[in-house]
Structure formats: C-alpha cells, structure tokens
Design a protein around this nucleic acid. Structure first.
Lengths: 102, 102
DNA sequence: GTCGAACTACGATAGATCTCGTACTATGGG
DNA sequence: CCCATAGTACGAGATCTATCGTAGTTCGAC
C-alpha cells in the first residue's frame, strides 16, 4: 500500500488539466503554500476559507491533474508539489506561475 | 462610436484569468495558431470545430483575460498574442505553455 | 442604395464545478 | 473498547460556462 492514491504518470499529465487546476484561487494558494514549505506538508494544515470536504475536492483535482503527489501517513495526507515531473514536462511553467505576484 | 474593444492594461492582467483562458482546448488552439503565425491574423481564418458565435465567445474570453489583443480592420478582427505584456508580467509562462507538446 | 461577408449580442440549454452538510472509514491514544 | 481526529464519499444547490441558433450591426463591393 505504498500508493493507494491514484496519480497520473509523468507522460500522462496534460497541460489543459494543469492549467485548469491552477486557475482556481483556492488551489493556487494550496500549491503556493506547499511549494513555499518545500518538504511534504500535511494538507489539512494549510489554512483555507473552505470546509473540509471542499478542501478534499480541490486536493483531488490537483492530484488527478498531476500537480501534487499525496501519500498517507497515519490519518493525515502529506502533499508535495510534483516539481520534478512538471519541470521535465513543461519547463518553466511552474516557476512562472508560482512567482507571479498577482 | 466609442465601441473600441476593451483590453485590460498590463498591470490589470490576473494570473488566474490567464490560466483559465488557456485551460480550454479551443482557446489554447487559437492562441497557438496566432503565436505560430506571428503577425496579426484574421481571427475568423483559424479553423475551429465550433460555430461563429462560440468563436466570438472564446475570443472575448482571451481578450478580457489579457492574452490577446484585437483590433478592427474592415469587417474583420485582427488578433495578436500579447507576448510582450505577458512576458513582462509572467516571464516564461507563455513560452512554457505554447511549447508544451500535449 | 442594396447585398453579402464578418462579426457581435442575446437568449436558451446542457453540462461542469464550487460549495456545503451529512454520513462514513481509518488510524491512533487512552 | 471507546473516542477523537483526519480525511473521504455522496448528494444537493447555486453558479459558471461552452455551445448553439437567431437576430442585428458594420463595413466594403457593386
């Protein structure tokens, strides 16, 4: 059970899905926080103005788009940005988006 | 009349709007074609599997997001990608998206 | 002036999606 | 075992949006 959660392979990631995932302000904030913290972060620890179930929805969208990777750890989920895969597939994309100030 | 087409200023462009605009396959195709051709292109000349009114809708979305600029020329609309503005605001973003193979 | 071409405006509709509440599962501490 | 915590599943409501058809506008050609 190293990977019960479904993730797309690197070559299965689609640019439209990535852009759509990052076009939502809540999800963009999630990814920015994960990227800022760097190491795996408990997804529930990131403050959001939405409920738990909405958070789950957004995290699934990010995961299924290939933007983040999630693994289980106890009752928590540890999330990390898939920077290596995204940089390999779309060089410069993530940096350009995450460094945008507004 | 003063019904000149409305465009956001460079510093009014928002990253979420740009990402949302480019997340649609029809709009991404439009922008890729405009960028490939380079100089201003008659928007109606780009082949699309949608009707005229749907095309208008997508072009307006791109224009209002600040991705393209449109000017009138006779009964046609000439569209160009706002590469200078986008490169200045989000360095590397457009190149990363447009060079994505899939 | 009349006609057609290019485009926009508007309304309608079907589907997506963001949000929530409730119910449920799984894990770990006492 | 009991229970709290972290998260998911599911369904519902409200909003958004992609699409179309029809009608209207604008411009150039004749």
């Amino acid at each position: 059970m190293s990977d019960e959660l479904v993730h797309p392979e690197r070559d299965e990631i689609r640019i439209e899905a990535v852009l759509h995932a990052l076009a939502d302000p809540v999800r963009l904030h999630l990814v920015r926080e994960m990227d800022r913290i760097g190491v795996g972060v408990a997804c529930g620890a990131i403050e959001l103005p939405v409920t738990k179930s909405t958070r789950t929805h957004h995290l699934r969208t990010l995961r299924e788009a290939g933007v983040i990777r999630m693994r289980k750890e106890g009752t928590s989920r540890i999330g990390t940005v898939r920077r290596d895969d995204l940089d390999a597939r779309y060089p410069g994309l993530l940096t350009a988006i995450l460094s945008a100030e507004n």
